[in-house]
């Protein structure tokens, strides 16, 4: 090995090793040890760890583990939050793309929930659903405000969904606004002269340009909603009963409340596979789009 070559390698090691070491510490070691935990019955404390094979995976689906319940809640939540938040975001984006005086200021305000700690958002909305609604009921007499928004199983689902949508709308709106800026203005103006209606213009001219933005926003919102934790943790505390416990909530309780590290790790692995699959599909879809263009 020449002296020069040795110097290149030495420099490479000096520059890259801090991040590589941290990477081993925060990603590789936890990932591998989590993979081992899930085949054991470890409780996180005892020195006796028994290898139980795939037993955790059959326990996951038992009633008492609450996993099936939390998966069902999370999927229903995703099924509501993803389409509604994206449609609202697109609507806001279309309006704010127009020549309005206050559009930058309004954009800043709508994006604001993304910079506030999620648990504060939970508290704020808890106040709305309890005290504020109570006062509104006194003034208006509308039954709507008197419903038990956090205490009733079915309503609690919608309360969590509303808050999740409220929190993310501004984020996807920004993605759609940047998508709308790629729309070819000349084609758009030509279509107006040719007498295309509002809907035709949107469907035939604007939509094709914002398909990449839609793809990105959709996949992001799916994988983000699947990892929901903080909002129901504070807003409903997962209740009433177990009605609003998400998958992450369930993993958190299994590991840190019930001390079942093995079972918790098995659940965490399923979460990992699900989110990794979604990312993989996203990459493939975007790649195919690039090829088509």
């Amino acid at each position: 090995m020449t002296k020069k070559r040795r110097k290149i390698i030495l420099e490479f090691i000096i520059f890259t090793s801090p991040v590589i070491l941290l990477f081993l510490l925060t990603y590789i070691y936890p990932f591998i040890s989590g993979f081992i935990y899930m085949f054991t019955d470890w409780n996180g404390i005892s020195s006796k760890i028994t290898f139980v094979g795939l037993e955790n995976f059959s326990n996951i689906f038992s009633e008492s583990s609450g996993f099936v319940n939390s998966v069902s809640f999370t999927i229903r939540l995703t099924a509501v939050v993803v389409p509604v938040s994206n449609l609202l975001a697109l609507a806001f984006a279309l309006i704010l793309d127009m020549d309005l005086k206050l559009r930058n200021f309004i954009r800043t305000l709508l994006f604001m929930p993304n910079v506030i700690t999620l648990i504060i958002i939970g508290f704020m909305w808890q106040f709305v659903f309890t005290n504020t609604f109570e006062s509104l009921y006194k003034y208006t007499g509308l039954d709507f405000f008197n419903w038990s928004w956090l205490g009733d199983e079915r309503l609690a689902f919608w309360s969590v969904a509303v808050v999740c949508i409220w929190q993310v709308v501004g984020f996807y709106m920004v993605i759609y606004i940047s998508g709308l800026q790629t729309v070819n203005q000349e084609v758009l103006e030509a279509s107006i002269i040719d007498g295309a209606g509002r809907w035709q213009r949107f469907y035939h001219i604007i939509l094709p340009f914002i398909v990449p933005a839609i793809t990105i926003a959709l996949f992001l919102s799916i994988s983000n909603t699947l990892r929901t934790f903080d909002i129901p943790f504070v807003l409903t505390k997962g209740g009433p009963g177990f009605a609003t416990r998400t998958v992450v909530f369930n993993i958190y309780e299994e590991a840190f409340k019930k001390n079942n590290y093995g079972l918790g790790s098995a659940k965490a692995f399923i979460l990992f596979v699900a989110t990794a699959l979604i990312t993989l599909i996203q990459v493939l879809v975007l790649k195919r789009k690039e090829v088509e263009n």
């Binding site: 925060t26 990603y27 070691y29 936890p30 990932f31 040890s33 989590g34 935990y37 994988s223 990892r227 934790f229 992450v248 993993i251 958190y252 590991a255 590290y261 918790g264 790790s265 965490a268 692995f269 979460l271 990992f272 989110t275 990794a276 990312t279 993989l280």
Partner: peptide, 11 residues
């Protein structure tokens, strides 16, 4: 692609 929640227990 690894979310923190998936490795929080061993972490």
């Amino acid at each position: 692609v690894i979310p923190f929640h998936a490795i929080m227990i061993p972490t």
